[in-house]
Design a protein around this nucleic acid. Structure first.
Lengths: 351, 351
DNA sequence: TTGTATGCGTTATCAT
DNA sequence: ATGATAACGCATACAA
């Protein structure tokens, strides 16, 4: 904070250029003088001034993470995955979370100018293609997470919602359940859309003669509870319920419990996400596991890749596979058994 | 990323100085030319280069957050609280989490040099007073979270573990339980130490004739499970168990369930933290709630305060109160009832 | 009101 | 191998 390169130069009786060379290992400096310089540096507790360095270097060794206002496990695990991998690439992490409005996000993005070498963006309905075009500096390496935006010039990494849902529906069908209902998520949410698509595709194939039962939710526990009540009121009750996320499944479970309907005895239940709560409810919840930290790690790897070779077209689409986790709520044999259902982080370049 | 202040100056046909003045509102510029400059700036999508600006300004408008490798709710809520409050102060957040080793943390701290105006540090056994003295740049505003370090030159903000524990023990005692056992946390963990101290103080006062039953845990669910088994094996079983955190309480609960011991009928149970899982286990878990986001918010406020007036001695100790949350596991009437038990964020300057 | 010139701390270029 | 010195993009003291 206080000692600059000049101080070190004076202390070691050399020029600032030599100090820079010695400390950066650029070569061209006698072992003897390097030794002297290093000693002077530690004696003065010298640490290069990041801003000054990046001004000339054009590199901040920092990546930004832009995400909406999230609570809970998803956020922390994602950040954790990104940060861990960033460190292993020698990069730091500038986080800007908790922004809800468009202008809020835009301001955050602008503020990252000249402070980051690349950005990971977790999409939300508000942060779409138009927004990015308008606010993202040209040429800044960017990775979009869970994004529906197509045909952008950016790398996109998605959870394999479709395959995960499909696999779970197949599992339920394999247990003999044909009347499977879906509790869907918010209409404008990308994950929710894909999960519903997966559900419809699976049902069309596995139970083509069943009428589709879809009741709308919004990813909240409360909406899951409501959906649970609606489902119980149906003339012909479903044999199984697939909720588009775990929180809604938990809400359903509560509704079923209060109505005295046994799970999985009278009705099977499954969710999506594998939040920590899933294994602690009674009965424990079968679900589709998303390895969130891996999502962050892969995003960071993708970004580091883009940063390494600038100018190259970044457009590509990647997918992170999910596993299904069978617990008690869907009536199968109890156990940790998890079948890998979707290919791991398969890469499919967009044309 | 590409347009600099010079480009704007050329475009608006003025000097760079005028551009700077106009865009920073330093005054001394005709409304007409200001208008012209602003238009040129937006046309060129000009955004000031952060590094360059902070080089001359000596201000980065960024605060750092240094924390150990944490999963889950605590991390995310803390970051959320800090980030939210940072934004309202016009500050950005540079996160460095997930470091476990001392040198790892030291490197992270060094890397923040010249990139932040202040730091929030979540202490861990490894990050102690000596570490901070050695690695913290002199004069950099710093707030220590959940730290046992005394007599440092920094502001310290702690959870009121002592009072929270005391209040819960009092609640249990008020329910008629006198034989209360403690499942303690890691010996080198500051929170765990304070919670044990609170437990001992409460027992000394509320059940002075009872022998102390303390079984060691390490904050993990597994250790709680083990502790639960040990407690069941005791000649005289405790009437209530207070676990130093919720995860251990959940472990206990599992042990009790498997042993066919009813909670709260045969044994009452309480935890600490109020993690989301607490309300979803059966029976739901009574616990001491820590408002983690508030912890982050207060830390950020403290830091902003320090940053505002430099040079002033920062030494001070602050405490964030907790509430007890009564659920089913301790046998009281069901309900949300939460009594505020400890003073809110009281301020006690250290001499 | 506006422009010129200097310096922030560093790396990179070019002499020596 | 080492030292001057010019950038980097910006804010500001000073001159006009």
């Amino acid at each position: 904070m206080t000692a600059t390169i000049k101080d070190v130069a004076r202390e070691a009786k050399v020029s600032v250029a030599s100090v820079s060379r010695a400390l950066n290992g650029s070569g061209g400096v006698t072992p003897a003088t390097e030794q002297r310089i290093r000693e002077a540096a530690t004696r003065l507790r010298y640490v290069p001034h990041g801003a000054a360095r990046s001004l000339i270097t054009k590199r901040t060794h920092t990546v930004g993470a832009l995400m909406p206002d999230l609570h809970g496990e998803f956020f922390s695990e994602l950040i954790r995955g990104i940060d861990l991998e960033a460190r292993s690439h020698g990069l730091h992490l500038l986080v800007s979370s908790s922004h809800d409005g468009v202008d809020d996000a835009a301001a955050a993005l602008r503020a990252m100018q000249g402070r980051v070498d690349g950005i990971v963006i977790l999409s939300s309905p508000r942060v779409d293609a138009a927004f990015l075009d308008a606010n993202l500096p040209e040429g800044l390496p960017t990775v979009l997470l869970n994004s529906g935006v197509k045909g952008t010039a950016h790398a996109v990494l998605n959870i394999d919602n479709f395959a995960g849902t499909y696999a779970m529906v197949r599992h339920l069908a394999g247990l003999g359940h044909k009347r499977i209902a879906l509790v869907s998520g918010p209409k404008d949410n990308f994950d929710a859309q894909q999960r519903e698509a997966g559900f419809r595709a699976a049902m069309a194939e596995l139970a083509p003669n069943e009428p589709l039962r879809v009741v709308a939710g919004d990813f909240s526990e409360q909406s899951g509870y409501q959906a649970g009540l609606e489902l119980l009121a149906l003339k012909t009750r479903p044999q199984a319920v697939f909720a588009a996320n775990d929180m809604m499944a938990v809400g359903c479970l509560q509704a079923f419990k209060e109505a005295g309907v046994e799970v999985p005895g009278e009705i099977a239940l499954a969710g999506f996400d594998d939040i920590p709560i899933a294994r602690y409810v009674t009965p424990s919840l079968s679900t589709v596991r998303v390895r969130i930290a891996d999502l962050g790690k892969n995003a960071m790897d993708l970004l580091a890749d883009l940063m390494d070779r600038p100018g190259v077209s970044a457009a590509s689409v990647h997918t992170l596979g999910c596993d299904i986790v069978v617990r008690e709520s869907c009536g199968a044999q109890r156990g940790a058994a998890a079948g890998a259902t979707t290919k791991k982080t398969q890469r499919k370049p967009v044309r």
